[in-house]
């Protein structure tokens, strides 16, 4: 599917905000992802959908390697070939009336689309966002602009609460959880919120991104699952956290 870039700007030293226009009809849920074809790179790059409209798409990505570095050179007007609507995404129905959305670093972007969906469903989400330091904070104002309270933690204490997202949990009231971020963070959350309905969005190195290559398989309570197809979002009880 051909998309056209309208904006590609840095939000921090390493995180960029890419806005595109194109047919987003295949995107059905927040937390799905797209596969971006980049000239000069054989494999596509999986990037979570941050937010979308009928003909607009927002991808917030972190520069992690040569492919995402090349993405920073994309210019408004450039065309980009995407496979869209990949993965299962977050099912808002699994979450209660007061869900807590927890994002660690670049795990935060798909939670913005989820927050919008939850607001449309009449729920009252709050956000807990963890970063290493103040200069790395991004996207929190986008949640606040929706009227969603945001609690920030930083490892070095340069903004918000000093520590990890789990250090902020005792002060928050919520009836369900959706989280995306580094695996150690997800594991710590899972240990801390036993008994609360929880959805975790996983990351795995992918080949195709649509279920054909079996490159991103994990073991789950109900058997092998492809992070790209049965995931990337799994219920807490499905995951083998060992």
């Amino acid at each position: 599917m051909r998309f056209e870039i309208t904006e590609n700007e840095p939000l921090t030293d390493a995180v960029w905000d890419l806005r595109l226009t194109g047919d987003t009809g295949a995107i059905t849920r927040p937390g799905q992802f797209v596969q971006v074809a980049l000239p000069g790179f054989y494999l596509r790059r999986p990037i979570s959908v941050c937010a979308w409209g009928p003909a607009s798409l927002r991808l917030v990505y972190k520069v992690l390697g040569q492919g995402t570095e090349a993405m920073t050179h994309l210019q408004p007007g450039d065309a980009l070939d995407l496979l869209t609507g990949l993965g299962n995404g977050f099912d808002p129905a699994v979450l209660g009336d007061s869900p807590l959305l927890v994002g660690g670093g670049v795990g935060l972007p798909p939670l913005l689309g989820l927050a919008e969906a939850l607001l449309r469903a009449g729920k009252t989400p709050q956000v807990l966002a963890g970063f290493n330091r103040a200069e790395e904070v991004f996207l929190t104002e986008d949640f606040r602009a929706l009227g969603i309270p945001v609690v920030i933690t930083t490892l070095d204490g340069s903004l918000g609460l000093k520590g990890l997202v789990t250090d902020a949990l005792p002060s928050l009231r919520f009836d369900s959880l959706a989280a995306c971020g580094p695996l150690p963070m997800l594991k710590a959350l899972h240990r801390a919120v036993q008994g609360v309905p929880a959805l975790y969005s996983l990351e795995e190195r992918m080949g195709c991104g649509f279920g054909a290559c079996m490159g991103c398989s994990i073991e789950t309570a109900s058997g092998p699952a492809r992070v790209c197809r049965e995931g990337p979002v799994f219920r807490g009880e499905e995951l083998m956290w060992a």
Partner: peptide
């Protein structure tokens, strides 16, 4: 067969490596 542990995929110039392991 579940196959091999992940990562199972690596990019190469003009191609890719896989170590899926017959899942």
């Amino acid at each position: 067969r579940f196959g091999n542990p992940t990562p199972r995929i690596a990019e190469c110039p003009a191609g890719m490596l896989n170590s899926v392991g017959l899942q």
